[in-house]
Simulated scan of single mutants.
Amino acid sequence: MPNTPSTKNRGIFLLPNLLTTAGLFSGFFAIVASMNNQFESAAIAIFVAMVFDGLDGRVARMTNTESDFGAEYDSMADIVSFGMAPALVMYNWALSDLGKFGWLAAFIFVAGGALRLARFNTNLGTSDKRYFQGLAIPSAAAIVSGLVWVGTKYQVDPNSISYLAAILTICAGLLMVSNFRYHSFKDVDWRGRVSFVVILIIVLAFVVVATEPSLVLFSIFFLYALSGPILTIRSVNRLELKHVVGDTDEECEAAKNADKREVEAKEAAKTVQKDDKKETSE
Rank of each mutant, 00 (worst) to 15 (best):
S6R: 14
A33Q: 14
A94W: 09
S127I: 10
N121H: 02
P213Y: 12
G70A: 05
R116Y: 11
A114T: 10
V156W: 08
K242C: 04
E40A: 08
R58E: 05
L135N: 11
V245E: 01
G70F: 04
V80A: 06
Q155I: 02
E250V: 07
L231R: 13
A30L: 05
K153G: 05
N159V: 06
T271Q: 14
G11P: 04
I233F: 15
V177Y: 12
K270H: 07
G23R: 02
A94L: 04
L95D: 06
T169R: 11
F196D: 05
R191K: 15
Q38L: 10
L104S: 00
N3I: 14
V272C: 00
V236D: 12
P16S: 08
L115A: 15
R130V: 02
G27K: 04
R58K: 13
A265M: 13
V263H: 12
L24M: 12
K274S: 08
C252N: 11
R58T: 04
I143Q: 06
L223C: 14
Y73M: 13
V272L: 14
R130A: 15
A85L: 04
S195V: 00
V144E: 07
S75T: 10
L88D: 01
E212W: 08
R116L: 08
L217K: 05
G146P: 07
N36Q: 12
L19M: 11
F29T: 03
A85R: 03
V194Q: 08
W149N: 08
E72D: 06
C171R: 00
D275I: 04
I199G: 06
D68K: 13
K100D: 12
L175D: 06
L174C: 07
F39E: 07
L117T: 09
F69I: 04
A105E: 08
K153I: 03
V188W: 07
P5Y: 13
E66I: 03
L175A: 14
V59W: 01
Q133P: 00
A166D: 07
D189Q: 11
S34W: 00
N159S: 15
S75K: 08
L19D: 00
I233R: 15
E282F: 12
V209F: 12
G113K: 05
T4N: 10
N257D: 14
N179M: 05
F25V: 11
K277S: 11
I202A: 15
A111Y: 03
M176Y: 01
Y154L: 11
V207F: 10
L231K: 09
G83V: 04
I201W: 11
A142H: 10
I108C: 12
D53I: 03
R181Y: 04
K242H: 12
S160R: 06
F28H: 01
S184L: 09
L19H: 01
E279C: 01
D68Y: 09
